[in-house]
Amino acid sequence: MSASPLISLRGIAKRFGAHQALHGIDLDVEAGSVVVLIGPSGSGKSTLIRCINGLVRPDEGTLHIAGSPVDIHHERAWQQMRTEVGMVFQDYALFPHLTVLRNMTITPERRRGVPRAKAEEEARALLTRVGLAHKAQDYPSALSGGQQQRVAIVRALAMRPKAILFDEPTSALDPETIGSVLDVMKDLAREGTTMVVVTHEMGFAREVADRVVFMAEGRIVEEAPPGAFFDAPRHERTRAFLSSIRSFGEAAHA
């Protein structure tokens, strides 16, 4: 008997007006595993990942975090569970009026009741880990995109979440700085952080993912460990997508 998955979705559906963005999604994420979510633009990846922490409220379905059900129709329940599931966005979304250090300490202080001095000590330790200890007192505008995204990651970590969701964390970055962010994410994976990652970085998916999930038109088409997924995709739709991004990648590197 295995323990229940850390994140478990059943029949999650979401409609925007006339458009059905998600059709009854089932997804399990085991504790300590990395799930990479890929698919064409508009296939519902962001909507799905946002349904996991309630930034988008699912219309139907059930969500369990660490075995406990989340009451998807109550904002309070989401607020509570969001302290347990962190999220990193494409545009970093650091609070621009606060220093890097304050960005990291404000929610542990206000939400987890950690004393200021302790929160700062923890924040500095996290910044050191991502090579940004010297930026603690700077404002976000003084940091490069890659540096801001690394701060956003450790800001999420400072809440000590059970899992972290990433929505295209490197899509807004210059090519030179993408590597520094992916390295931090690889480190987290090695330490056993549970992660759900929407990305177009296929190298990252192959190297780090325990499972790759391919979505199209609001449905999960195929999911498999990266080796099987990339080398022997079963569905025509998956093959078409993979060949399209491969040719794009080759064009980009040509």
């Binding site: 309630g54 930034l55 969001r82 302290t83 599931v85 979304a93 939400r111």
Partner: peptide, 8 residues
């Protein structure tokens, strides 16, 4: 969204 996802 960033603030909400931190639990604020």
């Amino acid at each position: 969204e960033a603030a909400f996802s931190l639990g604020l």
